[in-house]
Amino acid sequence: MSAQQIRELIAQHARLSVNANELGEDADLYSAGLTSLTTVNLMLALEDHFNVEFTDKMLGRKTFGSIRLLSEAIQELVAA
């Protein structure tokens, strides 16, 4: 999945303390200011945008830890 699309959604919905456009694909989003509440905003935005639904198993910090992890999870959902 496009890392850039995910990055843009992070910029719009995750209320990070850093500029999302400067985030590397492996940067720790929680260190960058993602909270559990903004994780929910981001999750809903990603689901809308990519027309997917995260499985219950995916609904934890591990899935939302970085752009790469999110991209892999969405890839898995799209392929399913």
């Binding site: 559990s36 994780t39 929910v40 999750m43 910090r61």
Partner: peptide
């Protein structure tokens, strides 16, 4: 709700 599942998981993970 569904958002709550994320909240629950992160509360437990932390």
């Amino acid at each position: 709700g569904r958002g709550g599942k994320v909240m629950k998981a992160t509360q437990i993970e932390q």
